[in-house]
Simulated scan of single mutants.
Amino acid sequence: MHRQLLLIATCILGWAGTAAAQQPTTAASLKTAYSISKNATSESEYTQIIDQIQQSDLAAADEEVRSYGNQLLAWALNRRGELRWDQIQAPDDEFATAAIEDFRNALRLDPNRWRAKQNMAFVYATRGQMKEAEALFDDVIQTKPDHANAFFNRGELRYEMGKLPAAISDYDRAIALQPGEADFYTGRGHARFQHGDIGPAIDDYRRAFQLDKGNATRAIDLADALQNAGQWRSAAENYRNALRLDSQNLRTLLNLAWLLATCPDGSLRDGQQALEITQELRDIPANEEFRYIDTYAAALAETGQFEKATRVAQTGLNLVPASERSGFEARVANYKSNQRYRQSPIRQVGGQ
């Protein structure tokens, strides 16, 4: 954008030299708008640019200056819209409404402004209008075929739409364009995992963690995939990597405790440690309550406390997701029969 602003400035200053006598207010307004734009970062500064240009008489300028003036106005509208969108609390609150108006006005002035198209695609996605969002991402990619984030953003959208092969293809392209971005590998890892490509998903999660070793979530993603693949020892190592980065992460603590309580490998299983982890947890959020109950009950059973395990597990019967009910009810039956639970891998991939 900096180079474009210089072009705008050149045109404005050149036009001002020949037309200032006839349109001094317009020339001054455009020059002021450009001056503000060089260092603008706040909503108020972008508003000043917008006001300056809207108060000028662009219609009286020659076509070239009018075009660049509209481009500068579209740029400022889009930037102000981005700042407003960052403040939204709900998809239809006052900030969202104001941001959408800015994005639409930017595109009305400059239909080829790809960043505004991308922002409108985010708006549509947030509102659940997936097809409209996908169409705009298509336009962005057609305009900017070398923009890695455009492919990544469309991949994220297609993942949410359940278009897993298409999403993987978009992540492939993003990675080819920008191979050092950890988010791209994580996105492809999620899509591959959901598609059933567990081994390649693990490779992606591992690469994401290698690129971003200070991020606990990268380690957790890798550990979860390894546990689901039955690579128990590697999973345990990566959960502990995650805990070194974030010792209070609830997802890590619950999933490590689950592994310690239910792992088929007796050399890794440690019911007492699993019990200690779960008993020390406090303030469990509602969306994690079932996972906590399930894990705590498994740890109790592993330490031989079957009666208590049964009582605890039964408190989760009204919370269990429909997709997990049959497995959970089987575990409750195990505990009633004084049997411990042993998990099985979703799909065996490679060795330990």
Rank of each mutant, 00 (worst) to 15 (best):
Q248D: 15
H195T: 02
Y185T: 09
D138G: 04
Q227E: 07
R158A: 03
R240V: 11
P145C: 04
E276L: 07
A167F: 03
A148E: 03
R282P: 00
N228D: 14
P179H: 07
A242L: 05
A216E: 09
E276C: 00
E181G: 03
G199F: 02
T217E: 12
R251N: 12
Y239L: 15
Q279A: 04
Q210Y: 09
H147T: 02
L222N: 07
N228R: 03
C263W: 04
V140A: 11
G180E: 12
I202M: 04
G187D: 14
D139A: 10
V140E: 10
Q279R: 10
R154K: 14
A208I: 04
A223P: 06
R173T: 12
D265I: 14
Q142H: 15
A167P: 01
D283Q: 13
D183K: 12
R282A: 11
M161D: 08
D221R: 13
H190K: 12
Y171A: 00
F209W: 10
P264C: 07
R154P: 05
A236I: 10
R269Q: 15
K144R: 15
P264Q: 11
E237P: 02
E160F: 15
N215G: 06
W258C: 02
R218Q: 13
L243R: 02
A242F: 05
Y159I: 06
F209H: 14
L245M: 06
G199C: 08
L243P: 04
P165A: 04
Q227D: 15
I175Q: 05
F193M: 07
D170M: 04
Y171V: 05
H195G: 07
P179T: 03
F137D: 00
R158P: 06
I220E: 06
D204L: 05
L177S: 05
A191S: 15
W258L: 05
L177R: 09
A225S: 09
Y239Q: 10
D146S: 10
D138I: 09
Q279S: 11
R244S: 13
T252P: 11
G230M: 12
S247D: 13
I202D: 03
Q210R: 05
I175V: 13
A257C: 10
E276D: 13
A148N: 03
G271F: 11
D270S: 09
A257V: 03
D246N: 14
A150D: 08
L281K: 00
P165I: 06
G266W: 01
L253S: 15
Q210A: 14
H147P: 01
Q194D: 11
L254C: 06
A219G: 11
D183I: 09
R218H: 00
Q231P: 09
R206I: 08
G162R: 10
K163P: 07
T186L: 14
F184R: 08
K144Y: 06
R240F: 03
N149V: 02
A242G: 10
P200E: 05
S169I: 01
R233T: 14
E237N: 15
A216R: 01
